[in-house]
């Protein structure tokens, strides 16, 4: 996404090599890495992604979504309303790709809500639009000033119960693109990653 701000033209997609835009040296962890150290590495990179060598001679991915598997196995009385409240990051109809992408970076948010609704757009939805509707930006001369209205928004799941952390983790684990709203709390997999650092969460069921 940051490359789109630097080069918002089709030349980013055609003629640019993946190594020119990648983040070098992925975070690598082992089976003996402590959970708190994994999250610290992620915070340092600003990216919740690590690789771990596997038994098949290649690498497996550890992501915030993967951590939901840990969240759903913990036993705790902590609930959604114990999480820090976050001011929702929003956009309006007619806002441009430039303003929305900048807002996502300024607020470190991968999902941004349409004002007054539970509809959102995300880095995935923006990239999908660029790839499929905008033909990798071949059909626009001024991408950053184009309105985001072209993006097909998705909806966060709104819930009405103050679920325990393991319960909301399980709910999100079963979602293709996890994003839950409970009253004023917006819950993403990264929020689960952070709350699992709590010294109060000690009970855990491995199976």
């Amino acid at each position: 996404m940051e490359n789109l701000l630097k080069n918002p033209t089709s030349s980013l997609f055609y003629g640019t090599k993946v190594e020119d835009i990648m983040e070098s040296d992925p975070v690598r962890v082992t089976k003996d890495t402590k959970y708190k150290d994994l999250v610290e590495l992620w915070k340092g990179r600003g990216r919740a992604y690590a690789v771990i060598s596997n038994e098949w001679g290649f690498y497996s991915a550890i992501s915030a979504q993967k951590i939901l598997e840990i969240g759903m196995r913990c036993k705790t009385n902590l609930v959604i309303s114990d999480l820090p409240k976050k001011q929702p990051v929003t956009f309006k109809k007619g806002d441009t790709f430039g303003s929305v992408i900048n807002s996502m970076f300024e607020n470190k948010a991968r999902k941004i809500l349409l004002e007054g609704s539970n509809k959102y757009l995300s880095d995935r939805l923006i990239i999908e639009t660029i790839s499929e509707k905008m033909k990798h930006l071949r059909v626009t001369d001024d991408f950053l000033n184009d309105p985001v209205d072209i993006v097909k928004l998705e909806e966060a799941i709104v819930i009405y119960d103050d679920l325990k952390i393991n319960e909301v983790s399980k709910m999100m684990y079963d979602m293709a693109h996890p994003f839950v709203i409970y009253k004023d709390w917006l819950v993403t997999p990264w929020d689960i990653c952070k709350v699992l650092l709590s010294p109060d969460i000690t009970e855990y069921v491995v199976k």
Binding site: L12, K17, V18, K34, V51, I70, S131
Partner: peptide
């Protein structure tokens, strides 16, 4: 606390189940 436990302890069987998706150096961004 969970934070003090290793990944092996937390996900002994499933830790490596999500294989990395990869692309070779030299491919174009599209």
């Amino acid at each position: 606390p969970i934070s003090e436990r290793t990944l092996r302890e937390l996900l002994p069987e499933r830790l490596t189940w999500s294989l990395c998706i990869h692309i070779d150096k030299g491919k174009e961004v599209w």
